[in-house]
Every structure is written in structure tokens, then in C-alpha cells.
Simulated assay, not measured.
Amino acid sequence: MSHQTSPNLTIVATMNTSDQNVFTMDTAFQRRWQMKHIPNRFTGESLDEKTINHVAKHLPNSEISWGVFAQTINKKMHTANLGFGGTEDKSLGVYFATDNDLDDAERFAEKVLKYLWDDAFKLGRKELFNDCSQGLSAVIEAYEDAKGDPLKKVLVPEVYNEMQKKMAEMAAEQAQTAEEKTSEEEAAESAVEDNPAQKPAGEE
């Protein structure tokens, strides 16, 4: 079979190279196409404003942000012995939960918690969920009906405490950054006052 290429045509497509159902097809595509890895980033200077705001959103009725929740869960997923090989294809992506999912406890529980129970932690639910004896329905109901932070109700203390610790660290970093910025601005103003010659024209 022969084929022709066109310098004026570019086809852009996406695929999950870890998807078990299309692994052999992915392999064939990778031999014939130029591949580019898209990292799953929740932090970093490369994030756009929309993504920064998305990962900073707090989960419904919780003090934990979506970014901290997802990164902590992904870390637990990769380090726990869940009975299968690679876990990259099961990781929570930045936009696995939409803004609407993060605004509604029922939507969040029935999408994110259900996925973690049914798939990502299927072979190791006790690594994540506080009480597995009553099944998924009980977990979802406990989350939706919880008084206080619902994550504290459904997650094992080790995981929830790690999320709290990360939130505290981020708050401390933000406070330090704000303080350093204020100090720099005050120093700049003081330098101008001490040296009037540096004042812009028209301010005399």
C-alpha cells in the first residue's frame, strides 16, 4: 500500500499510552507518529491561570483543595501495594474533576470517590477508605451527610492528615512570599525617599 504526505496537513490526536485496552494499537501508532508526553502537573510556573484556580478550589464542604487531594491520592496510589503493576493510567488528572464536580458534594462523591473505590483502589480499599465494611454506598452517604470536613469522615487518618499538612505548608509558603514581596516594596520606597534624585520627574 502506498501513501502520500502533504506538507500543509498536520493531524493532532491524543491517546493514553497506559490504557490497557488499546496497548497494541498504541504501540503501532508510536512506531509511525511523533509522540509528545503531556505531564500531569498540579503545580509549577507553566500552569495557566485557569488551571491554577482549578487546582486551588476546595472540595465541597472541605478545607482541602482539589490539587492537594489529587496529588496525595496519586502518591498513595503509587506507593501502596494495590496488587497490579503500573498505576500511571489510574492517576487522577488535573481535570478529572470539573469545577462543577468540585462545587457539589454529591457529584464529587459519585464521580471521584466511586472511581477510587471501583477502580484505582479496587484491590486495596483499606489503604484509602476509613470503613470498607458497608460498601461504596455507605462511603458515599457518609461523605454527603458528614458534619465538618467530609474527607475526614471517609479517608484513613494517615491520608487525611497528610492532606492537612500539605495545606498548612502551602499556606505558610504563600504567607512568606507575601511578606517578602511587601519587604521588597518597602525597601524600594525607602530607597527613593533617601535619595530624592531618584524620584521620577514631576514628583518634586
Rank of each mutant, 00 (worst) to 15 (best):
K111L: 12
K111N: 13
V112H: 03
V112F: 10
L113R: 03
K114Q: 15
K114Y: 03
Y115A: 14
L116Y: 05
L116I: 08
L116N: 04
W117G: 05
W117Y: 15
W117Q: 06
D118F: 02
D118R: 01
D119T: 13
D119I: 02
A120V: 04
A120W: 02
A120I: 00
F121D: 01
K122T: 08
K122L: 05
L123M: 05
L123V: 00
L123A: 11
L123C: 03
L123F: 11
G124L: 03
R125D: 05
R125Y: 02
R125W: 02
R125S: 05
K126F: 02
K126S: 13
K126E: 14
E127K: 06
F129A: 06
F129H: 05
F129Y: 06
F129D: 06
N130R: 10
S133H: 05
S133I: 05
S133D: 15
Q134H: 13
Q134E: 14
L136S: 09
L136D: 11
L136T: 08
S137V: 10
S137T: 15
S137W: 06
S137Q: 14
V139R: 01
V139K: 01
I140Q: 03
E141P: 04
E141I: 15
E141H: 12
A142K: 06
A142M: 11
A146F: 05
A146S: 08
K147R: 04
G148D: 12
D149W: 09
K152G: 11
K152E: 15
L155P: 04
L155H: 02
L155W: 00
L155A: 04
V156F: 00
V156T: 09
P157H: 00
E158T: 10
E158I: 00
V159F: 07
